Computed example of a mutant assay.
Amino acid sequence: MTTQRVLVLGGTGRTGARIVRRLAERAVPTRVASRQGEYPFVWEDRATWDAALKGASSAYLCYSPDLAFPGVAELIAEFTQRARELGVNRLVLLSGRGEEGAQASERAVQTTAAEWTIVRSSWFAQNFSEHFLLGPVLRGRLVLPAGDVVEPFIDLEDLAELATAALIEDRHANTVYEVTGPRLLSMHDVAAEISAATGRSIDYAPSTAEEFMADLARDGIPRDDTQALAELFEEILDGRNATVTSDLESALGRPCRDFADYARRSATSNVWQTGFQDQR
Rank of each mutant, 00 (worst) to 15 (best):
G275T: 08
T2M: 10
I19G: 02
D247C: 09
T2W: 00
A166K: 00
R265C: 05
Q36C: 11
S207A: 15
F69D: 14
I76N: 01
G275R: 08
K54T: 15
G275D: 10
R35K: 12
A113F: 04
P70L: 13
E231M: 11
E115M: 02
V88C: 04
T243N: 10
L237Y: 14
T208H: 11
L216G: 10
L162M: 02
P145N: 06
S121G: 12
L7D: 03
H188F: 12
A228D: 14
L142N: 03
L237Q: 07
E151T: 12
P70A: 13
R223N: 07
G98E: 06
N127Y: 09
S57V: 11
A125E: 06
A263Y: 10
Q4F: 02
H172M: 08
R26L: 15
V6C: 04
E106W: 03
A59Y: 05
E157G: 12
G220L: 08
R183I: 04
R82A: 05
A165L: 12
Q277T: 10
E193K: 11
L156E: 05
T245K: 10
F233W: 14
V176H: 01
D258T: 15
E130M: 11
V92K: 02
A260T: 15
S121M: 12
A267V: 03
A73V: 06
F259A: 06
Q103G: 05
G253C: 06
V6S: 03
A108H: 06
G181N: 07
A209R: 09
V119P: 10
V119Y: 04
L185M: 13
A114Q: 15
A33D: 13
Q279A: 13
T117E: 09
A165Q: 13
Q279H: 10
T198P: 06
L237T: 01
A166Q: 07
A56E: 07
Y262T: 09
L53Y: 12
I236C: 10
T12E: 02
L138E: 02
D170Q: 14
C62W: 00
V88F: 01
A196I: 09
R90W: 01
Q126V: 02
L7G: 00
F128G: 08
A214K: 15
A242F: 02
L75H: 05
D225T: 15
H172R: 06
G220P: 13
A263T: 14
A52Y: 08
Q227T: 14
E78V: 05
L86F: 05
T12G: 04
